[in-house]
C-alpha cells in the first residue's frame, strides 16, 4: 500500500527537526568548552571582571517620572593573579559541565532517532545521568556564579552568594522522565519474545 504524501512529508519534517536538534546540541557540546577557555584566557591575560556591587539601599533613579530602585551597580575590577586563576578555573569548569550535559542530550537524541523503539539503547541510564549532572552541576554553578563578587570585594560591598534551587526542580523533572523510560525498558524486556 502506498504511503500518503502528507504522512511522508510530516515524517521527513520530524526527521529534519530531530537532526537540527542533534546538530544544535553537538555544537553546544563542542562550543561551550572553547568559549569558556577563551573567557578564561581573557581573565588570565588581564581582562577586567564585571561584578555587581551593592549601593545605598533605597536609592532610586528618576527615569521619566518613574523612580527605579538603584541598590546595586555593575563595576569592572582587575583581579590579582591568584584571583584570575580561580575565576578562570570556574569558567573552564562551567564550560566542561555544559559540554557534558549537551553531549548526553545529543546521545539521547541520536538514540531516539536510530533505535527502533523509544525504550532501548540505555536511554533511561543516560537521562538519569543528565538529571544527576543538572542537580549537582547546576547547584554548584549557582553558588560559583557569586564567586567573583566574593573574591573581588573583600570589604563586603559585593552581593551575597545565593543558592538557587531551580536546578533541583529541573533535575527532579528529568529524573521523573528517566523513571518513565526505565519502566518502559522493563516492560519492553518483559514483552520481548512473547508469542
Amino acid at each position: 500500500m502506498a504511503t500518503p504524501a502528507s504522512t511522508t512529508d510530516s515524517q521527513s519534517d520530524a526527521r529534519a527537526w530531530q537532526v537540527l536538534a542533534e546538530g544544535f546540541t553537538l555544537f553546544a557540546a563542542g562550543a561551550a568548552p572553547v568559549f569558556s577557555i577563551i573567557q578564561a584566557i581573557g581573565t588570565l591575560t588581564g581582562d577586567p571582571v564585571v561584578i555587581e556591587v551593592a549601593t545605598d539601599p533605597g536609592r532610586t533613579l528618576d527615569v521619566g517620572g518613574t523612580a527605579l530602585p538603584l541598590d546595586s551597580a555593575f563595576v569592572e575590577v582587575l583581579p590579582t593573579t591568584t584571583q584570575a586563576w580561580v575565576l578562570a578555573g570556574v569558567d573552564v569548569a562551567s564550560g566542561l559541565f555544559i559540554a557534558l550535559v549537551a553531549w548526553l542530550v545529543y546521545r539521547v537524541l541520536v538514540t531516539a532517532r536510530t533505535e527502533p523503539g523509544p525504550f532501548r539503547g540505555g536511554m533511561a541510564t543516560r537521562i538519569f545521568r543528565i538529571s544527576g549532572l543538572v542537580m549537582a552541576g547546576g547547584m554548584a554553578l549557582s553558588v560559583l556564579s557569586g564567586l567573583p563578587n566574593l573574591l573581588l570585594t573583600p570589604d563586603g560591598a559585593g552581593l551575597t552568594v545565593s543558592l538557587s534551587f531551580l536546578p533541583l526542580f529541573v533535575a527532579a523533572a528529568i529524573a521523573w522522565t528517566a523513571e518513565v523510560f526505565r519502566r518502559g525498558e522493563a516492560l519492553e524486556s518483559d514483552l520481548s519474545g512473547l508469542v
Binding site: 514483552l191 519474545g193 512473547l194
Partner: peptide, 14 residues
C-alpha cells in the same frame, strides 16, 4: 512467531 516458538527462542506464550 510460530517459528520463534518452534526454535525455543520464545520467552513467553499468551
Amino acid at each position: 512467531n510460530l517459528s520463534v516458538l518452534k526454535n525455543d527462542r520464545a520467552r513467553a506464550v499468551r
